[in-house]
């Protein structure tokens, strides 16, 4: 298998066509909406189920007086999230903190799939299915569908709270008179539109881009051993691969945490902005 095919193979989803037309398009390598990325869905669902399962088990043995090690750990995550919510979110909304916690846990765990050796799960999958060309893309956040799904949900909440807090007229006024006042209404509409639409897009693309690039670097490092370590040269290339892999892994551990954190904080901030009444807006 060549280098390009190796990388492409790793970055292709295991896709199920929902109708014949879609199947045709997939076979031709074209885009189609009516298809499901089974690997993305399965892995993200498994991770979500893991969170719920562990949380439910923890919930059965909660202690008020002397919390054990794992409960302490989870409590510190909760504390961390609620501190961020308190700092970045004005007012009170019972939905924000669980939303932020969900984002942080889910995104972090999905990103964490990136740290599992790149060939391990795909190879296991190929052995299990008996198909040596079976696709498996293990990191759900390297699939735009996942990151966009989250950012669109957040966007829907932003719109909902904008209308709920400011009212329909207040929200419209934001588009008309913000940021340049009443004499530049057409410019205002364009500016505000860009501002609002860029929120979900930047959220989704930032996470996707970071994770996709990280995965790509892991693949390139894996290629060192795969293509160059032949015969005696392995003595040189194999240790280098291990070293580079370790370095990138440690750095990437920081990146996945940072990306999960940024997604969470920006969600809180955007929803906080949606909750602000239009008192300071020019009109």
């Amino acid at each position: 298998m060549g280098t390009v095919e190796y990388i492409q193979h790793h970055l292709t989803n295991n896709t199920l066509a929902l109708n014949a037309e879609a199947q045709e398009a997939i076979d031709k390598g074209q885009m189609t909406f009516w298809a499901l990325n089974l690997d993305t869905i399965a892995i993200s669902f498994l991770i979500g189920a893991l969170i719920v399962f562990v949380a439910a088990r923890l919930g059965k043995q909660l202690e008020t007086g002397k919390p054990g090690g794992f409960q302490n750990f989870v409590e510190s995550i909760l504390d961390f999230v609620s501190t961020n919510v308190r700092d970045a979110f004005p007012g009170h909304n019972a939905l924000i903190a669980p939303l932020a916690l969900t984002i942080f846990l889910w995104v972090w765990l999905m990103n964490f799939m990136d740290l599992i050796p790149v060939d391990l799960l795909p190879m296991l999958f190929q052995v299990i299915t008996g198909n040596e060309h079976a696709h498996l893309k293990v990191v759900p956040t390297t699939d735009l569908n996942t990151t966009l799904a989250m950012s669109f949900t957040v966007f829907a909440l932003i719109l909902f709270y904008n209308v709920k807090i400011k009212g329909v007229w207040g929200f419209t006024k934001m588009f008309l008179f913000h940021p340049f006042g009443k004499f530049l209404i057409p410019v205002n509409i364009v500016m505000t539109l860009i501002e609002e639409v860029s929120k979900p897009l930047s959220l989704a693309l930032r996470l996707f881009g970071n994770m996709f690039a990280g995965e790509l670097v892991f693949l390139l490092i894996a290629l060192i051993g795969g293509t160059l370590a032949v015969g005696a040269a392995a003595l040189f290339w194999a240790p280098l691969q291990v070293l580079l892999d370790l370095g990138w892994l440690i750095f990437h551990l920081l990146v996945i945490t940072l990306q999960a954190f940024i997604f969470m904080v920006l969600t809180i901030v955007y929803l906080g902005m949606a909750h602000e009444d239009d008192a300071e807006m020019g009109h």
């Binding site: 989803n13 896709t15 929902l18 885009m31 189609t32 909406f33 009516w34 298809a35 499901l36 990325n37 993305t40 869905i41 993200s44 669902f45 979500g48 969900t102 889910w106 759900p140 699939d143 735009l144 569908n145 996942t146 966009l148 799904a149 989250m150 669109f152 949900t153």
Partner: peptide, 12 residues
């Protein structure tokens, strides 16, 4: 981008 988006939104 495909129907996975909808499934992921529901999942989220």
């Amino acid at each position: 981008i495909n129907a996975t988006l909808l499934i992921q939104m529901i999942a989220f």
